[in-house]
Every structure is written in structure tokens, then in C-alpha cells.
Design a protein around this nucleic acid. Structure first.
Lengths: 247, 247
DNA sequence: ACAGATAGCAATCTCGAGATTATTTTTCGT
DNA sequence: ACGAAAAATAATCTCGAGATTGCTATCTGT
């Protein structure tokens, strides 16, 4: 009846992903993508009835998909008052970046301690690809940005991939996903390719030198940067999108 | 029709909890409790059909409850092959304790940095109650143990309660919940009240002295202790309940 | 005119049956 | 007798309708 829906509404969220086996997963990815892209604004109420017409699925399926999104902290469930998109705010961003710095730096420390030759090889490879993507970023095209985003993700993933703690890596992935909405926001203001590349270069070199302490410093700054961009650009007003109609 | 089910099957999971507003939450708590208590063994397949007769609920409701438990990492969903209780293993325990140490010590650092007079007061109060509960632990009754567990929880909660990061505290709570199964296991081998009390005393004093570095040391050891107990007692065999029939 | 209460409405929560998929058992061929 | 394919079985996944709950607007009384 509505099988092609999968092909139509689903899009890989940027990172490599296996095809969705179940309808729930399909709905989950579709809604997640639309939240990250801002189609569903922060604070917006997600009425199942309305979503049913939008995604052409049954209420039960959508409910379960929303449940998965609640686990990702992209949707909040208000008791028996339905669901709504998780609000964005400056304090939430600061909290998120703080925890990401903690987790990301710890994962990096583990990686530096455990990384073998294969790890180094993949880091070298990913850094090379990232550098090329950063060069192409001058074109200011959407495709170039998409590729840079993917390469950036892969580079940071390769950096921490030698960490042994399964939970730490899962947590890192979840926080990365939560940060994606804010990342989109800071990208609107225009990135500063040169500074970003310099930081990546430092991270790369320090990682190969196994200088964990200095790497942690640079990584922390690297994660902090988008916060400053967003704050100074005023894209995120102090009180943001509570009811869904802000500037 | 079956309203009294709530009263019958639901039991507060140990920590203070508001009455469940929705049936899903009721099912969630009931199943969670049974997993923590070991009624549902690690690795056991949770067939919805079977659970339906056990909890007297509809399949949809149980599915959503299981979804919530997946978010807590107490249940794993294997694609479209149904749900099963998250397995327990030595490596999983080590991973869990490692991350708990990271999160708990970081939260403690934040608390020491931000804690005001009210925080100190609640810490003093909780430590006092915990001490009394530890004295009563000599009775070896189930009630005494239940109370000690509650006081222990409250003491550690009070310790980190001044931390500002919302996500950090939520993560901490989630990890605490995941650790509860292993805690039950180590409790079977018999606790060593004297050592535990000594550690609590140290933690208490170092917290009031705001000696973060030494507190982190003691806290880490404190969290590590149950691991040693479980390993030495052999309660957790190296290969555990993967499929129910070890390899 | 304002406050409280009641009636109506909308959305959610809950449920059981049908469709789809994975697993097991049986059967056939070599 | 052993291996592989196919049918039967059992579970899950999906769906739409009914019951319950929360919210809103109107109405009445002071």
C-alpha cells in the first residue's frame, strides 16, 4: 500500500546507516532528520494526529518512534499531555557542550592510550580526506558543506575509535546527535575555515604525538567554539522558542 | 475493568517515586523491578505474548514499556527479532563502573565547587541518617538492608546534588539504575559494613573540606569495590548468559 | 464585570485483530 | 544417512477504532 514511503521520506542522517528494517525505525529517522533540520521547530508540539497525515503512518508506529526520540533527548514527553520537540536554549547548549567536552576528551585519552597502528592509519586517512574537504569548502556550495560535515564527523570518530569503553562511545554518539541542531545554527553564521582547519591540524598532530594533555586542551576549545559563534551572533535569544514563535 | 492491576503489580523501585499516571509507566516500573530483582534473568528473551499473560496488559502497552527499558539499557532490542533482557558480564560491569566513576567524580567536583550552605546541611543530614542505618545493618534483616540501600542512595545523591549540569545528573541517575543489578549480586556475598562505613566517612569529611582531588580518589575506590567482590566470589562467570546456554 | 463551575471538544492512551517476518520441523533428493 | 529446500508454526510488527483524560469556551451567580 505505502511501501515507497520508506524511499520517499527516509534520508540517511549524514552518517553511514544500514537500511531501516522496520517501519518504526523509518519513522524514527524521518522525524529525527526533520527535527535536526528545523522543520519541526524547538518547543513545537508533536501531535500524533497531525504527524499521521504528514508521515502517512499509524498512530502506534509514530508513538513508538517518538519514544525512541525521547531516549535521544530530541523529544520530550510531558506525562500524558503528548510529545513536543525538545526546546533549545543557551543554557541547554552550554550544558551540552560541557558534557560533550568531558566525554570527548576522555574518549580521546583512551584512544591515545590504546591506539595501535591501524588506529593511526585510519586517523591519517581521515585527516587527509578532511583537509581536502576543507579546501573545497571555499566553493560555498551545499554539496561541499555536506561533504565537509561528513568528513569532520569521520575524523573525530576516528580520533576516539580506539577507546575501549562501549558505553562511553555510545554516549558520545548520542551527544553528537543532540549537538547537531546547534551545529546547524552556528553554520548559518558562516564558519571560519582557516581557524577550524588549524585546530584540526593541531588535534591531528597532538594525537599522533600522544600528547593527551595538550590534545584535551585543544579539543575543549574546539568544542567550545560554536557556542561563542552562536552567542555572539544572537541566533539564540536568551529565551528561545518556548511556544514555537520566536525570531 | 482492571484498574487494581496498578496497585497489585507495581512497586516503587526503591527510590522515591510519584504514582504512575499512565499504564505504560506502570508496566515500565513493574518490568524494570523484575529485571533488577533477577526475576527476568539476564539474556532471557522477553516475549510479548508471554508477558501479556504475566502482566495482564495489551501488547502495545508492553511494547512501549519495553521501549523505555531499552532507553535505560536494561533491555536490548534485536531488530525485528524481539526484546531480551540485557546480558550481564564481567566486561560490561567493568565498563559500567569505569563510566560511573568518571561521571560520579565529575559531578562531585561540580558539587564541591558550587555547593552552598543548604548543600552542606543536606549532606550532613544524609550522612547522619546513613550512619544510623549502617549501625542497624548488623541485624542482617531485609528491612535493615532496604533502609541502608535507600540511605546510601540519598547520601550519594546529596553529595552530587549541587552539580549544575542537568545532563550530567541525569546520566548519573541512569548509570546508577543500570548498576543496581550488579549491586544486588555483590550484596549476596555479604557486604563489609566496616570498610564501607569508613569510606563513607572519608567521603563525607573530604566533601566538607572541599578537597576535590582526594575525594575523587576515594570515590573511585568506593565504586570499584563491588567489582572486586563480584569477581572474587565468582558469582559472575566469564561467559555469562549470552544465549542462555554458554558457549 | 469578574470568578467559579459546567459542558463540549480535542488529543491522547489503550486495546485486540490482521499482516509480515523469522524460526523450526518435516520432507525430499542425493 | 546427511544436507538442503520448503512448508508449518510462532513470534513480532502494524494498524484503526474505542475508552479515557486534559483542555477550552461558555454560562451563571455574585
Amino acid at each position: 500500500m505505502n511501501i515507497m514511503i520508506r524511499e520517499a521520506t527516509i534520508a540517511t542522517g549524514g552518517m553511514p546507516s544500514s537500511p531501516p528494517a522496520t517501519l518504526i525505525e523509518a519513522a524514527y529517522r524521518a522525524i529525527r532528520r526533520n527535527i535536526v533540520l528545523g522543520v519541526h521547530a524547538p518547543g513545537e508540539k508533536l501531535r500524533v494526529e497531525h504527524l499521521k497525515t504528514q508521515y502517512d503512518m499509524s498512530s502506534g508506529t509514530l508513538r513508538e518512534a517518538l519514544g525512541l526520540l525521547v531516549a535521544d533527548a530530541l523529544v520530550v514527553a510531558q506525562g500524558q499531555r503528548g510529545f513536543s520537540v525538545a526546546p533549545m536554549s543557551v543554557s541547554d547548549l552550554e550544558d551540552l557542550v560541557y558534557l560533550r567536552a568531558l566525554v570527548e576528551t576522555e574518549a580521546a585519552r583512551q584512544s591515545l592510550a590504546n591506539g595501535d597502528d591501524d588506529w593511526e592509519a585510519s586517523l591519517v586517512s581521515c585527516f587527509h580526506r578532511l583537509t581536502r574537504a576543507e579546501e573545497r569548502l571555499g566553493a560555498r556550495t551545499a554539496e561541499a558543506y555536506e561533504e565537509w560535515e561528513r568528513r569532520n564527523f569521520e575524523f573525530h570518530e576516528a580520533l576516539v575509535s580506539a577507546a575501549r569503553s562501549r558505553r562511553l562511545l555510545e554516549l558520545r554518539a548520542r551527544l553528537h546527535l543532540q549537538a547537531e541542531r546547534y551545529r546547524r545554527l552556528s553554520a548559518l553564521d558562516g564558519p571560519r575555515p582557516r581557524d577550524v582547519h588549524n585546530e584540526h591540524q593541531q588535534i591531528y598532530e597532538l594525537a599522533l604525538k600522544r600528547d593527551a594533555d595538550r590534545l584535551v586542551e585543544v579539543l575543549t576549545k574546539h568544542l567550545q567554539r560554536p557556542v561563542d559563534v552562536i552567542l555572539k551572533s544572537g541566533l539564540l535569544t536568551p529565551v528561545t522558542a518556548e511556544t514555537g514563535k520566536a525570531a
